[in-house]
Design a protein around this nucleic acid. Structure first.
Lengths: 192, 192, 192, 192
DNA sequence: AGCTAACCGAGACGGTACGTCAAGTCTTTTC
DNA sequence: GAAAAGACTTGACGTACCGTCTCGGTTAGCT
């Protein structure tokens, strides 16, 4: 007996989907988030307007889908010689992500939008890119024996103290941290 | 001979100015930043649309003028018994500002807008509410003898490490920090 | 050698055809001509959209097929006692058709559409419901000896003078003629 | 005490109004009623879309305003030698209006639309171009002593019998009446 | 007292994006 | 190969806000 794997009707066009994601990526870099419009995305992707609305309900949703994978990849660091170098590597990746990467630009735009649109805030909460990456980093250094005296319970607090300073520098002062600042943060983070 | 202190013509109406600022304050709380429009502000303030555009070039500018004073006031803490309690008090004020205050809601909206609008970013950089308040707090505890071994040069880094964690919690996780978390942050901040 | 009387493949579904015609009839009465759409017809008939397009090229065409038979039947009058009563009966049937009948509603919609769509005008000219019925009526009274002095040549003019007044009342003033008005028209028509 | 003759705010632009009316006139002849859209009108008139919607709620409304004056003028006939020539002149004007004039094209489009849009029907009823002109013609011949035996009460019926035949020829058969047909109609109309 | 300048409110102006809807076509599976 | 399902492109719909302009009218300092 055969299984009905496919639903009835014409299947969703992968071409259209990719064209939209690519268009959003391009437009964000080329024109900025504010200048991006649903209409413009559809036109740039050479896709019907309805097709965009059928699959995504806002430009934030498209942008998240377009950048989430890149973001996660860019924030994954391969273990190095010791815990401190691992944390420093993570903070460096975080700085680069937030200040230089296209995916990071998208993330900042989304985080910004989340501050005055609850739907975007909720959307962003569902895919906690920064938190997940930070937790992975912390788990890594714990596996090396670092942070031995720190209870598992306050994980969220740890994440905040690890990520917060670099985030502040990016969002508020717009300045990229220097390498020695990052290694200092890493050292103090592990010395708690 | 008398000086022309006043420009020619009808002077600016203080009534109109206050009506606009009040309208913006009200609307931010009542309807949110995204739903606020220049047209709506003018109508709510019972003021001509041109009058708004004459004095402010964007809703961000109005919002900044409407909330900057409140923000600075809410982030000023009176010295307590020791350095740690001062820092804890500052962090508590910061948390309340960001999560509970109307002025803080305005600040978050502006910080959000700054992520995808360079003009707002520049505007916000001109009045570094959070940084100024943090620097004042740090100067206070330095006057008490704390942070003795830390050079003045890295002031920006100090500010980032002081403010960053609470900022991360607010912007990214949307969670208000617990008192014990705040005192822990203060203790570790002074222990560097 | 075998004869293929039937074309290859799945035969046209009579069910689908009737479902569409019925749907159009229902929708015209329920929602009006303007609110009727090809999409809506297909959905109401529970028929694929392409199936509708395969067999009819416009909603006017469907409507004509759905109402032509009814229209012709409603405008056929059985002979009565004399010529004048026949003409009066025809005018009464015409009035009822135009102002009360569903088929008449369809005819008015089509006639309206024909005023700003040449394709519909042509379509309608191919099936001159009103003219045919009027000609039949005139032939009937001629068989009775009436209109003896009127040449056959001006048949179109006769039709216009017979049908025109009631048509004007319906289309322009939207008022249904009174019985005494109709018999007056019939009397004057035969008195020429 | 001063009178406020003008309403507050910027006054309506007569240029914009005329540009829209002219655009509608042009488009009707050039492209036909069905192809006319609110968007197209605004673009052709080089006027904002909102400006069109601010003053008219449908293309029917614009078209009526654009053609009503022309229509009334074209249907006004100057008295001639006798009643019959007056009626013939009116019927000739009516035929020309319905089959040749731009204003008549507009009227036919509106009358058509009225058959499947009640709002247009009501609109058209408010300005009964054909009826008014016919009543004027009838009043004229009455002043000459014609139609002496016909009571004033059935004025609507008279109008229907006068206008109906030509209307039928135009709307249904799409044929323009011959001069001898028109004079025949006039003769029979007065012979009642 | 009159003049000039810049303000005030109201609201129309040309634009443009919004999100929805229908048109007509195309692609896939099912009958 | 027709039928049904449903995604596709196109483009009009009516609404809202954008920033500008054009009114009548007001409020000051300066002749």
């Amino acid at each position: 007996m055969e299984q009905h794997q496919r639903p009835l009707g014409r299947p969703r066009s992968e071409d259209a989907r990719l064209a939209v994601l690519r268009a959003v990526d391009d437009m964000l870099v080329a024109e900025g988030y504010a200048a991006m419009t649903m209409k413009g995305i559809a036109e740039r992707a050479k896709v019907g307007r309805q097709t965009v609305y059928r699959w995504w309900s806002s430009k934030a949703e498209i942008l998240l889908e377009a950048s989430a994978a890149d973001a996660a990849r860019e924030l994954t660091v391969t273990p190095g010689v010791d815990a401190e170098s691992d944390v420093t590597a993570f903070l460096t990746a975080l700085r680069d992500f937030l200040t230089r990467s296209d995916a990071g630009l998208a993330y900042r735009a989304l985080l910004g939008e989340a501050q005055h649109d609850d739907r975007v805030a909720e959307l962003l909460r569902g895919t906690d890119v920064l938190g997940d990456a930070a937790r992975a980093c912390i788990a890594g250094v714990r596996a090396r024996g670092a942070l031995a005296g720190v209870p598992e319970a306050g994980a969220d607090l740890l994440v905040a103290e690890l990520v917060g300073p670099v985030l502040f520098q990016t969002l508020v002062t717009g300045r990229a941290a220097e390498p020695e600042e990052l290694s200092g943060m890493a050292r103090r983070f592990l010395a708690r």
